[in-house]
């Protein structure tokens, strides 16, 4: 299983880096527990490596790939980051509404008609409105404030 060889190597590298970073902590008592966990993790990673090298070729290799939609995925990822960026500036509810609309329009751009687009804007508005009434008005939950709410 080549996948597991990759995982266990990455894990081992991480474990070693973390183990070295332990020396940054000044209270020896604070180090006990993380050290034990890191050591156990190291042993487990070695086991995984051994298993993946020894039991090669056994079992089906994950699910069928089927082509990873990289464009769509990275689009979504970037939009979420943009959403975080605007959340503290525009306020929670406005940015949530905009995110909802933009995400549904961008990710579902194939075969988009005006009618469908309007439906998505409406859905976004309804969703944010329900959130607003339930949590802001009825339960007084604090969210980042912005230009409107």
């Amino acid at each position: 299983m080549r996948k597991d060889i990759v995982v266990s190597s990455v894990l081992l590298a991480g474990v070693i880096a973390l183990y070295l970073s332990l020396s940054l902590m000044d209270d020896p008592r604070a180090v006990i527990f993380p050290r034990v966990i890191i050591l156990v993790m190291g042993v487990l990673s070695l086991l995984l490596l051994a298993q993946s090298v020894l039991v090669r070729g056994k079992g089906a290799e994950g699910e069928a790939g089927g082509g990873f939609p990289f464009g769509r995925f990275s689009g979504c990822f970037v939009l979420i980051l943009a959403y975080f960026f605007f959340m503290e500036r525009l306020g929670f509810y406005v940015s949530a509404f905009l995110f909802f609309v933009v995400v549904t329009l961008v990710l579902g751009s194939r075969g988009l008609t005006i009618r469908k687009g309007a439906g998505r804007v409406a859905a976004g508005a309804a969703f944010t409105a329900v959130l607003y009434v339930l949590f802001n008005r009825l339960l007084a939950v604090q969210t980042p404030k912005g230009i409107l709410f």
């Binding site: 469908k116 439906g119 859905a123 508005a125 309804a126 329900v130 607003y132 009434v133 008005r137």
Partner: peptide, 19 residues
């Protein structure tokens, strides 16, 4: 589902205005 939304939107907007 997208057509049912019309009703939901109207209701939600009404609530929003009210509160």
């Amino acid at each position: 589902n997208e057509s049912v939304l019309g009703v939901v939107v109207t209701l939600a907007v009404a609530m929003l205005v009210l509160f």
